[in-house]
Amino acid sequence: MKKNTLPRRALFLWQIRACVVTFLAAFLLTLLLSDFPFWHRLSLILIGVLFLFFFCVYYPLKRIKFTFFLHDGNLILDCGVFYNRRRVVPLDNIQYVTTLRTPDMLPFGLASVMVHSVGTSLYLPCLFFADAQNLQEYCARRKKRG
């Protein structure tokens, strides 16, 4: 049985984002708290711990646990890091699908997909752009047939 997972470069992108955010936070804290050495060091340590947690634990787990597949007219998505979630969306109830590409996704050829159903929506982050387009077209074609 085959399921679709997120590409490795998605993890790489998230880790780059974590690095950038950490660097910016550290820079701002240094700028603002350099006169208070104790608080400055404490906040930098906290940020470092958070960075290591996201870099080494959260994002790798997020990628490993994120899979999706089609089954019996449903789009099924497994996700979650601490809490495991399986989301099931009947394809017939999907209203429309949108793809989203942020500037940092472009060099990696990635795109996020938002599946809008009646009253709910489903977010699939950082798929290959071609796969995102496939998914969008598949849902649109199915909707036309329905």
């Binding site: 399921k3 679709n4 019996d72």
Partner: peptide, 18 residues
Amino acid sequence: FGCNETGAIPFIGNQKPL
């Protein structure tokens, strides 16, 4: 709810089974 893996269809790509 009929949402177990049995008979799941791979949607895109040709990736390793999990």
